[in-house]
Every structure is written in C-alpha cells, then in structure tokens.
C-alpha cells in the first residue's frame, strides 16, 4: 500500500510538473513582477528604479484616469448587459433544439474567426464610406453619411459582437444539462411559461449565468483593440491607458498598478464563479457523480 502511494506521488509529480513549472515561470512570476513594479519609482526611459514608492497609486487618482475608469465601467456594464440579454434566450433555444451541433458551429465559427478580421468587418460596415452608409445612400434614404463609427455606440456594438459567443456557450452548456421535466412539472402545478422559466429554470442555471457573466465582463473590462480601432477620442478604456503607459509614457509602475487592479478584479470574479458552482454541486451532488469521486483514488 505504502509503495502504491509513493508511486502515485511520483507519477503525478512527473506528469504534472513540466506544465506547473512552465506556468509558474512564464505566468505567475510575470504577475508577481507587476505587483512588485507597482510599488517602485518610475525609471527615466521605461523600467523602474529600485526604490519603494506609492507614486503610482497616487497618480491613479488623477481626474483624467478617473474619467476613463468611470467610462470603462459604464461601457462594460452596458455591453455585458445587452450581451447577456441576447445570450440567455439563445442558449435556451440551442439547448432545446435538435440541431445542436449545427447551431454550436454557427456560434463558434465567428468566434474563432480572427478578431482583427471581425473588427475590420465592422469598420467596413460602419465607416463613412462603408457598406451601411453607401447602401442607405443608394436607396436615397440619406444624402450625407451618418457618423456611425468612432463613437461610444460603435464600441458597445462591436464589443457585444465580439463577446456574445463567450456568453452563449456557458449558458447553453448549463441549460443543456437542465432537466426540462422540471419545467413541465411547474406548468402542471399551474405556473405559466414565464413564471416557470423565472422560478424554475433561472435558479437552476445560476452557475452558468455567472460563468458567462464573468467571461464577458472581465475581457470587456480589459478591452484594448475594440476601443482603439472603432472608438473615437473619447472612447479610451483602462486597457488603452495601461498600454499607453507602457509603450508611450513609459510609466511602468503606473501601468503595473492598473494591471494589478484588473488582476484583482478578475481573481474576485473567478472566486465568485467557483464558489457558486461548488455550492450548486453540493446541492445536487448525488445526481452527477464524476468518475474520480466515484472511484477509489
């Protein structure tokens, strides 16, 4: 028995450590460096001077940055809200469909298409000589181009476009596991369809909704390319500030401090997601035992 245990430890370690070490060096250590750098003095040409300083955290409260922060929150909340609003019925319709594979493919194909190509497609549609303006002009609906791009509306639209698959997929996955007989039962005891969905379906797919919220909100909150390419002068988001601080202003401690905030936000989101799904699992723990739990390891 003792030998078996030793062997298990040895094998598990041999198999897992290469990836563990890789992630430790190239993922965790860079994050730790960022934390460290955020408490340092700014170097003259980028980099840092090895001297403790809270300057970066003081600079964050600059009213310009605060404006960007507020804008980032507003844009992220709006885009996430509309994304979720569309994703819930989509996930539901897909889970109830007989053509799940086809529908999944239709969601996944745009999702896998190069993100720059997708942004470019929107530029081709929205710009002043773009598809939409030219079409409207062709049918004499408008005579002057409408300002459809380089504004907040374009940013939110394209963000919804980019992240809607992220929101649909987890919702689909949880609704697909949901036992639809429960809905029938709710209706048998007199609930109408809306009522049955609100009080039976939604509470049962809570973890899926939270997962898709996190997977939409966090990347949108850290968005960089979309506000840069389809936004106007007033569309800068936190991601753009961070990049400018690294590449243009060369204030690495400030970029690190902003990054740290985003990292903490993401970590909180992940913890929320994990707690909620662990709770859900312990409530319905006996329904779906995984092999590992059922086995004797």
């Amino acid at each position: 028995m003792m030998n078996n245990r030793k062997r298990e430890i040895r094998l598990g370690t041999t198999y897992s450590f290469p990836m563990g070490i890789w992630l430790f060096i190239f993922f965790l250590v860079p994050l730790l460096i960022i934390i460290l750098y955020s408490f340092m003095k700014k170097g003259l040409y980028g980099g840092v001077e090895w001297e403790f300083s809270l300057a970066a955290y003081r600079q964050m409260f600059n009213p310009n940055f605060m404006r960007v922060l507020v804008r980032t929150i507003v844009v992220s909340v709006a885009a996430t809200f509309f994304t979720m609003l569309l994703a819930l019925p989509c996930g539901y319709a897909m889970a109830r469909s007989r053509n799940q594979t086809l529908l999944l493919a239709l969601i996944i194909i745009p999702f896998w298409t190069n993100s720059l190509i997708r942004i470019y497609a929107w530029i081709a549609i929205l710009s002043s000589e773009g598809f939409l303006n030219e079409t409207l002009k062709f049918f004499h609906i408008i005579s002057e181009s409408l300002p459809l791009i380089y504004n907040q509306g374009a940013v939110v639209t394209v963000l919804i476009y980019m992240y809607i698959p992220f929101a649909i997929l987890p919702i689909f996955t949880t609704i697909d596991k949901f036992d639809f007989q429960l809905l029938e039962a709710a209706r048998d005891v007199g609930a109408n369809k809306t009522r049955a969905i609100i009080s039976v379906l939604l509470p049962n797919i809570r973890s899926g909704i939270i997962t898709s919220f996190i997977f939409t909100f966090i990347p949108i909150f850290g968005a960089y390319t979309v506000p840069l390419l389809v936004g106007g002068k007033d569309s800068y988001m936190i991601g753009n500030i961070i990049v400018d601080q690294v590449t243009k202003t060369r204030n690495w401690p400030l970029a690190s401090a902003f990054s740290l905030i985003l990292t903490l936000l993401s970590t909180l989101g992940v913890m929320w997601m994990m707690v909620s799904s662990a709770k859900e699992r312990s409530q319905s723990g006996k329904k779906n035992p995984s092999f590992r739990q059922g086995g004797n390891l």
Binding site: G12, F27, F215, S266
Partner: peptide
C-alpha cells in the same frame, strides 16, 4: 489520476490565464 502535493496549486494556476484580460 494521481493525488500529490501541489496538485491543487497547478490546477488553479492552469485556470487563471484563461480569465485574465489579454492586455494584462
């Protein structure tokens, strides 16, 4: 398949890069 010291750590570590914004 195996349980060993550090297993939980590696598992958590493997998950984080998926959620962190790409810019970070």
């Amino acid at each position: 398949w195996y349980s060993f010291k550090g297993r939980q750590f590696i598992q958590t570590l493997s998950f984080l890069p998926m959620v962190l914004p790409e810019v970070i």
